[in-house]
Design a protein around this nucleic acid. Structure first.
Lengths: 330, 330
DNA sequence: CTGTTAGCGCGTTCAG
DNA sequence: CTGAACGCGCTAACAG
């Protein structure tokens, strides 16, 4: 059986309470008893039960992180940033994959509530506002990544996809690309809509007509990007550039072009988004928008902790991505 | 305030216990009262507190996963496999990065104990047996990935690195490579020693002398692999092949060769390990040993759950990697 | 089939 | 400065 606070108290010849005070550094305790209690704790190898503590304090020092899919290379670095900051502050992390499935996202959020997490970080949510809102509201504290949710009181950390898309399109236009396709990622992602408004905005600002048929949605994975690219180029052979929701799709586009004999960048320029490790290592190397993923994760975690401790200075943070020009769209 | 079981009981006009029974499907309950209790639960939106439940049952339905670094592309797929299986069985996952730091690994293992996790999965441990043993023993159930720990009672799932190394070396020898270097990864990794014994075994079996100086340790990352390769080739210019602890190191080796003007595979053949996404997409594509990462994660989680439920049929699983021949070592 | 009585291990009132 | 009693929300014996 585990040694409890009672064992320590008995062994040290003091009351339960005194032991508790020593552990939590609360109230004044005579150095003598403190030392002796500490010695007994050490000798018995006593460690307080987080569970019992949580029941009494109503805090778990645990937070939940929802990501669409941890095996998508964009998320691990975010998760790493989150976990590092949390660890430093004595918090643990529940990792939950939502697998792009709305029901699972809902179920996860409820389960985390049952587990009494002190807060949640919801990244890449695919839920519509009205379904997400009550689930977020049920949590004490929450920070959303790449999404807003008006009226929820949740914090928000976003990479400015609209700005990123604008940078990408302007770069392509400046290189004389005129028929720019857009592989827009999951239609249910708010982030996708931000990209799209940047894409449209930049083209309109340059007085180009928007052709809706140049925009194609697809899941954010390599194979899907490959297929979508083939479809896009089949319908619109004149396309001379493709802007992609993320790097995985962009690498898929690279593959598609190789397979159907379109040269990159000569025939078609490709621009990705995220700057995952892969981006700089494929051939041709991918022009993309660099996102400081680790920093985003760390900042998100810090914001959540501030929210939990009610000392948040801001509950909104927008980070601009940086265009990295490589061979796929020089 | 959260609605508790007492609220439900009062509202339904039954005792606490009856509500508890309904929730847990324990004992016989008259359909009538069951229905009415269920209705109240629904109406009040009652959800049992996992914390209170854990305190009473001594089970948390939570397990801890230790990985060296989730942003190393090898681990996310493992984590995904683990999380999927756990989720299906109603378990949650604490994700913990040990950052290749022994103290952090120790601290994490203790903290997970405080949190009363039902079990732990320890992947890529860097702790020596005598330090790891007590920490593992303190946990009810544990499964180690890519490592054994005699006398711990822990389960073990391993990818047979010795066999993988043997396959790689034999392949290289069959292609007339004679001076084969080995970038061995972290010296504190048991897995690294397995690779090494496969490397040595295969060479000895073919009657080649082992030159210790052809073996170099380095952290399992791209930059480190790049540096180590340069060092290796500087000392031993005659090397015509390099076998690497993992794909990241191998991609680093590819880069190093490009930078110093060694052609791959003409001058130097490179073989990696893991078959991460990147491996097939670099140029030249990497010959490597494919590891069914998701399956390893899923199998590990299943083994742990079986251990927890005391119905484990086996507590050891060894999976063979599969040689995938690509351009870097045809 | 259902209610009562005890804990689970700890923190937080209060007195002393 | 220290101790005793109570409660966190729930499950596990026992009764009935």
């Amino acid at each position: 059986m585990k040694v409890t606070i009672a064992d320590v108290a008995r062994e040290a010849g003091v009351s339960l309470q005194t032991v508790s005070r020593v552990i939590n550094n609360k109230g004044e305790i005579s150095p003598a008893t403190r030392e002796s209690v500490l010695a007994v704790i050490e000798r018995l190898g006593y460690r307080p039960s987080s569970i019992a503590r949580s029941l009494a304090t109503n805090r778990t020092h645990t937070i939940g992180l929802l990501v669409p899919d941890i095996s998508n290379p964009f998320w691990p670095e975010i998760a790493r940033g989150v976990e590092d900051v949390l660890w430093q502050q004595g918090y643990n992390l529940f990792l939950c994959n939502t697998t792009e499935t709305p029901q699972r996202e809902e179920a996860v959020l409820q389960l985390l509530e049952d587990k009494r997490v002190d807060g949640v970080i919801v990244a890449g949510s695919r839920l519509p506002d009205e379904r997400l809102l009550p689930l977020i509201a049920a949590h004490q504290s929450a920070v959303l990544v790449n999404r807003t949710l008006p009226g929820s009181g949740a914090g928000s950390v976003r990479i400015d996809a609209q700005d990123g898309a604008r940078q990408a399109i302007n770069h392509l236009l400046s290189r004389q690309r005129r028929r720019i396709g857009f592989l827009a990622g999951p239609p249910t992602s708010q982030n996708s809509r931000s990209h799209q408004s940047g894409y449209i905005g930049a083209l309109e600002a340059a007085d180009y007509l928007i052709e809706p048929a140049l925009i194609l949605h697809c899941p954010p994975y390599l194979e899907d990007g490959c297929q979508a690219t083939k479809a896009l180029l089949a319908i619109h052979p004149a396309i001379d550039a493709i802007y992609c929701y993320n790097d995985l799709i962009a690498v898929g586009a690279l593959q598609a072009c190789a397979e159907i004999g379109r040269r990159v960048p000569d025939d078609v320029a490709i621009v990705g988004y995220d700057d995952i490790l892969l981006a700089s290592l494929v051939t041709p190397a991918l022009t993309t928008l660099r996102v400081a993923k680790y920093d985003v994760g760390a900042a998100t975690a810090r914001m959540l902790l501030d929210l939990i401790n009610e000392q948040a200075e801001q509950n909104e943070l927008i980070i601009k991505p940086e265009l990295v020009v490589r061979a796929s769209a020089p």
